[in-house]
Simulated scan of single mutants.
Amino acid sequence: MPVVVDLDVMLARRKMPVGEFAAAVGLSPANVAVLKNGRAKAIRFSTLERICEVLGCQPGDILRWEPDGD
């Protein structure tokens, strides 16, 4: 997957449990798991904005691009 979600890294840095994060952002814990595991196909800008607001970070702290191994 070329776009990698580093949400688990940011949660660890902030020492924030998934349940607390999910409630603060307004996502279900299951949807947070989808993001953390890289299974999400899309994310709304409003959700990304709320994630950055809650974690005090920039979108680039959460999302990064990696080239395929082709």
Rank of each mutant, 00 (worst) to 15 (best):
G38H: 00
C52R: 00
P29H: 02
C52T: 02
V25F: 06
A33D: 12
A33Y: 12
G26A: 04
F45S: 14
F45N: 11
I43M: 06
A30I: 08
E53Q: 15
D70W: 11
V32R: 01
P67T: 10
I62A: 06
L35Q: 01
S28K: 05
N31P: 07
A42Q: 14
V4Q: 14
R44T: 11
A33M: 10
I43L: 11
K15T: 12
G60D: 06
N31T: 10
V18A: 10
D61C: 05
G60W: 03
K36E: 07
R50D: 03
F21H: 05
T47C: 02
T47K: 00
E53Y: 12
V9D: 11
L48V: 02
Q58W: 08
L48S: 06
L63E: 04
G69W: 08
R39A: 12
E20F: 04
V32I: 05
R13E: 13
D70Y: 12
K41G: 05
S46T: 15
C52E: 01
V9S: 12
V3P: 07
G38L: 01
V32S: 01
G56H: 02
G26F: 01
F45V: 15
Q58D: 13
P2I: 11
V25L: 06
D61Q: 00
D6Y: 09
P2L: 11
A40V: 00
W65P: 08
M16G: 09
R13M: 09
V54N: 00
G19A: 14
P17D: 11
D61Y: 00
V34K: 13
M16D: 09
P17S: 06
D8M: 10
M1N: 10
S28M: 01
C52Y: 00
N31E: 13
G38M: 00
P2N: 14
L27M: 14
D8P: 05
K15V: 10
L11M: 07
G60F: 01
R44I: 03
A12S: 15
P2V: 13
K41R: 15
A40P: 03
D6S: 11
Q58S: 14
G19Q: 12
I43T: 04
E66I: 11
D61A: 04
V32H: 02
K36C: 14
A30K: 14
K41M: 03
L35K: 02
D6W: 09
G69D: 15
A40N: 08
E66Y: 07
V3S: 09
N31M: 13
P67I: 07
E53H: 13
R64Q: 04
P67S: 13
G69M: 09
A24P: 07
V34R: 13
L27C: 08
W65A: 13
E20R: 14
I62H: 04
G38P: 08
V4R: 15
